[in-house]
Amino acid sequence: MATKLQEALSKGQFVVTGEAGPPKGVNVGRSLEEVEPLKELLLAYNVTDNQASVMRVSSLVMSVKLIEHGLEPIFQITARDRNRLAIQSEILSAYVMGIRNVLCLTGDHSTLGDHPEAKPVFDLDSVSILQAVQSLKEGTDLAGEKLDGVPTDIFQGAVVAPGADPLEPQLIKFDKKVQVGARFFQTQGVFSLEEWERFYEHAHRAKVPILLGIILLKSGAMARFMNKNVAGINVPQALIDRLDKTDKADRPKVSVEIAAELIRKIRSMCQGVHIMALGWDKYIPALLEQSGL
């Protein structure tokens, strides 16, 4: 059976996805409370896999919790913490638990997180995890062994950074992901129409749905920090100036305006948006309203 995400994308409906971060500790209830109010607005939630290399509750268990609460998860799986046995096993296990949307990523390096002495695995990468999913869907594992019970209806996706510099290697990898079976994409945060157009000119040819990544900018300082430190993020100076000129109390309003303006401009060149609210989930309703969604 198709997931809500798959069905909406196949019908050409504009989709909106968000994020649900598993807790560090066992307080899953609080993480669910944060996303539950958005139930009517967001079609599905990315469930991160030890995001930023910080140890948390697993993406699999948090995804199951979402399903129990009537929410649709996009189960993220990275190559950082597991080898090919564990990754394939986890994908099958997720399937058994009712998870169908799987987002395949390489993952941040372990040295960047809270266990910097941990062994980074990277036996596979985002491309080979997609190969693993495709192979499992066709009834065999990466070793060519036959499966007893085939997870034919996994809906697998991947990520891409339209603002990567240089862009061409990123586009080459994007094409590889399409080639090995990526059925949808979510992007790194984008902040300008020009950046999107440069990317989309190439990417639209793949004819795979792409969800524009939207990050809510909390301040000029945050934007400057991301420009300097976060790969693939390029916030134009004009937006930084606009935030700098805004009083703290009005910043959420301006932040939402900035994001909504971009969504309206790009809407005809993407198949949905993926919102990374970074704690500002309460502004998502206003954002969607102003974006005309």
Binding site: L105, T106, D108, H109, D125, S126, V127, S128, V159, A161, A164, D165, P169, Q170, I172, K173, K176, Q188, V230, A231, G232
Partner: peptide, 8 residues
């Protein structure tokens, strides 16, 4: 298989 998303 090419650069990760962390290439900056």
């Amino acid at each position: 298989n090419g650069p990760c998303g962390g290439t900056n």
